[in-house]
Design a protein around this nucleic acid. Sequence first.
DNA 1: GCAATAGTGTCTATTAGACAATATGGG
DNA 2: CCCATATTGTCTAATAGACACTATTGC
Lengths: 221, 221
Amino acid sequence: MKKQLFPLVTADIALFTLIEERLSVLLVQRANEPFIGQWAIPGGVLDPSTDSDLEQTARRILQSKINVKPGHLEQVKTVSGAVRDPRGWSISILFSALLPADQVPAVVGDKTQAVQWCDPQNCGHKLAFDHQELLEAALEGLRKKVRNRALPLHLLPSKFTLTQVQRVCERVLGQELDKGTFRRQLRENADLVELEGEYVRGAQRPAQLYTAAPGFVFKDA
Amino acid sequence: MKKQLFPLVTADIALFTLIEERLSVLLVQRANEPFIGQWAIPGGVLDPSTDSDLEQTARRILQSKINVKPGHLEQVKTVSGAVRDPRGWSISILFSALLPADQVPAVVGDKTQAVQWCDPQNCGHKLAFDHQELLEAALEGLRKKVRNRALPLHLLPSKFTLTQVQRVCERVLGQELDKGTFRRQLRENADLVELEGEYVRGAQRPAQLYTAAPGFVFKDA
DNA sequence: GCAATAGTGTCTATTAGACAATATGGG
DNA sequence: CCCATATTGTCTAATAGACACTATTGC
């Protein structure tokens, strides 16, 4: 290990969305050393000359490499150490981001990077660096918030039905929820606003559309 | 603001303990620029040549500057940005540490630094950098865990009574708790082990002593 | 009418909160 | 005995979980 005065600082992002009702996380195939060719969650190095803080680093990376502005972005934790990156002492600030299902088509890799939506529980790749651990931490953070009654509305389009809200919570938690109980709890919160007169129609009773209340944030009680 | 390729990386620690039944946080008076003479939570810069990761940075700082090994140390969050430190682009990884009440006498400042235990709610000083915000985040993190049933046993000596456990939770939360309810919930957890035959005596009925269960960690359910 | 999903209600078990009652030492 | 605190119990209100029921559309 070479001596160094300063660590390498990166922001890495676990970007979640819903694809065909399944919770999915974006992986990218690394186009550079180290771990070239391996899959990883998207990330990039801090640029002090352009980033006002590390959240901006994360937003810049998502914008430039993935072409998305996430609906929600928050810090999960920071990992660090002398050996986690072969280039030397490094720090990674891990973010968790939520992308509405209807914005998934906008996601692209750049010329040199393939991207892929994967099951966060079982992504099917051996990930680069300690990204497996980072992914697990991000998923657990997301689940913890949903268990604590936070609604991941940022995974849904801006108008949605109560059943969709239930589905997204179920897919995040990985378990079915009781409809009656779930809706009773939604009623006790004030997070949702009924869109009067707006319904989704199908081969059954129409479903009332809702939207997030003004000032809504994905936050537990 | 001067151009720089690398940010300054520091670990800052909100070190909590109980002093005369009151929750207290350690502040130090800064001996160096910037903010010389102002009060701050203890912290120091990462040394990649000695620290295997940032948790070790925090431990090294607590050991060398304050002379303590905390009973519990965990990450709270990371703050960063171009302007939070007048020296330039900086990152601070905030830790929260718990020190058992019976280890408080060991705490010292070094020759150049005064130290002081303060009320974290109202420390009575204008703190350096963004340390007021950091202190609030650390306190809120601590409270959130205790609200979620985590027991801050690391603030107590290794043997303690149930009343002491209740007191420490009350002081962290800043509100009184019901004795019957609190003890019922303790019984339902398996965090505590009764020390058979060991009691605290006073001018009243003796109180059973307990200790943390093997493998206990300060963690919410 | 039937299928399918939306939306509501109801019963019971569990848990929280308030408070009372009892227990056991020292003096 | 009396005081102080430990420890336990009890009643009620609130909440969660399981499940059943009704409602409204397209076909």
